[in-house]
Amino acid sequence: MSDNSSDECDTQHVLYKNRPEWSDITPLKQNDGEHPVAAIDYTEEFEDCFDYFRAVVQKKEYSERTLELTKTAASLNPANYTVWQFRREILKALNKDLNEELEYIGKVILKQTKNYQVWHHRRIIVEWLQDPSKEKYLTEKSLSEDAKNYHAWQHRQWVIKTYNLYDGELEYVDQLLQDDVKNNSAWNQRYFVVNNTTGFTQETLNREIDYTLGKIRILMENESAWNYLRGLLLHDKGGLSRNEKVTDFCETFYEQGNRSPFLLALIVDICSEKITNNGGGDGNNVYTSARAKELCNALATQYDTIRAKYWLHISETIENQANEQNSMDESSTTN
């Protein structure tokens, strides 16, 4: 391939207007009107490159030299989606080796990891090649720099879902959570994998609950893990309140004096669910509206004071819920 003149190692950039092989093209100036807004003081290199870009786009010239030009244009502004679009059309027209393109865009991505256009280009090339074999490695490399990079995760999910590459993903997620138990992206990926493979069967649910409780034990103040636990309980027939493993866990830590706001919030929600489901009617039920009220107060005044107004609102809502339930129960007994 001859289109490597704008690679990062090439420091001697020759302006297109000074290149003999471009002398047949009349560059086209940008027309920004008489009174531009949010104008940019382009460098000479930028202006020169895009003057030729405008000219060859109008001509729809698909050639080695225009392929090279798009590389320069993309290095000057990787967010220009038209440049990538034009580049793809050239690649197709010239029937280029897409493996080389994959290698090139991989390098660009690792320098521009938070740019929508470069990841999109990668995705299209993978689709054209129907070869997803290098994608996990690329995203892992990117995630090793920033383990929460949304673009990398989005690409990874797409490739896993499209080409059924779930094998080994749970182990990868586990590794990331060992590195950082607060990595919310990794927790999300865990849910994605389980949901799209085994689903939340009772067996999986038990395994995942054990796993999550283990992680919460490491760090109680971890919203991501508590959220995942709640996500699991969405699939538990008993809802939030009937999984003894979870309720025992909560009560043990509460009795030991733990006051993580996430722990208290879950107990509040368990109370709320119990009240709605059975009016708090069974004899040894500890999940009463009185307890919810007490915990909401504790959250509001001590453990989660920035959301004080919210917890007082929740307390009120639960009280109303309980009153409604009581009057319903009473009316059913009188009848």
């Binding site: 807004v37 949010a38 104008a39 940019i40 003081d41 382009y42 460098t43 930028f46 000057l76 502004n77 990787p78 967010a79 220009n80 989606y81 038209t82």
Partner: peptide
């Protein structure tokens, strides 16, 4: 300043989003 004066060239990465910047 962004609206009425030329932005420095290192913001050329924003070139396709000038209306958004505006």
């Amino acid at each position: 300043r962004f609206l009425h004066h030329s932005m420095p060239s290192f913001l050329a990465n924003m070139d396709t989003n000038r209306t958004v910047l505006a």
